[in-house]
Design a protein around this nucleic acid. Structure first.
Lengths: 107, 107
DNA sequence: CAGTTATATAACTATATTGTTATATAACTA
DNA sequence: TAGTTATATAACAATATAGTTATATAACTG
């Protein structure tokens, strides 16, 4: 449950979400990820470190490059946790449905 | 897309996730939410404000009480955004499957 | 080997977050 | 109406975050 802190707070940053959206199109090196942003390379490197720490990406070593790609682990954890909320929301919705169904006929 | 900042960063805090887990069991007032934590009432009130701002909960007015319950909006937005990652991960996985399938026979 | 390229890290600043205590407000209750 | 209860807000301190520049390191390239 502690990893969820890292995963959710990694996703809370719009730059990091944009990086993930880029990686959804396929692997990219650090410099390729720097290019579309108005941020310096060290800034992107730190965002990547955060994403890696959260289990959202993994990196290979390829000579002097470090291509990044999406990793499934954090997304799975998040999905699992959100499942709890989804189920509760459905249940509450059903309950509301029940209430409405009970009220309507009396009207 | 700006709401995702609020939604994800709301979920990044373990106290707020615990509050949501509690609300998954049903509506609760502020004091009921304070009770299980070792935090002061103002601290919880602010967490609730964050959760409300993120669209994760809604509150009613009931005399002097403000019962909170889960709201579906933010969860839906998050799910939608995560869908992008999920699809990309599946695609990459399929691609890997393809690579493995292509390699195995040659062995 | 000298220079360049790709990336990481350190040091620092500005801002945001989270908690606390103290206090305000509005609605119950005796 | 006086006191209590439920909640919110202000002011403040401590810590975390995100950016910058400067610099280190390791691998290519001529």
């Amino acid at each position: 449950m502690a990893d969820l802190d890292a995963a959710f707070s990694a996703l809370a940053d719009p730059t990091r979400r944009a990086i993930l959206a880029r990686l959804a199109l396929g692997e990219a090196t650090v410099m390729e990820l720097v290019e579309p942003f108005e941020l310096t390379q060290p800034a992107i490197s730190r965002h990547l470190k955060v994403l890696e720490g959260a289990g959202l990406i993994v990196r290979r070593v390829e000579g002097t490059k470090r291509p990044c790609r999406l990793a499934p682990t954090a997304v799975a954890e998040i999905d699992q946790w959100l499942g709890m909320l989804r189920r509760a929301l459905e249940t509450n919705y059903d309950r509301l449905d029940g209430v409405l169904a009970a009220i309507k006929p009396e009207k």
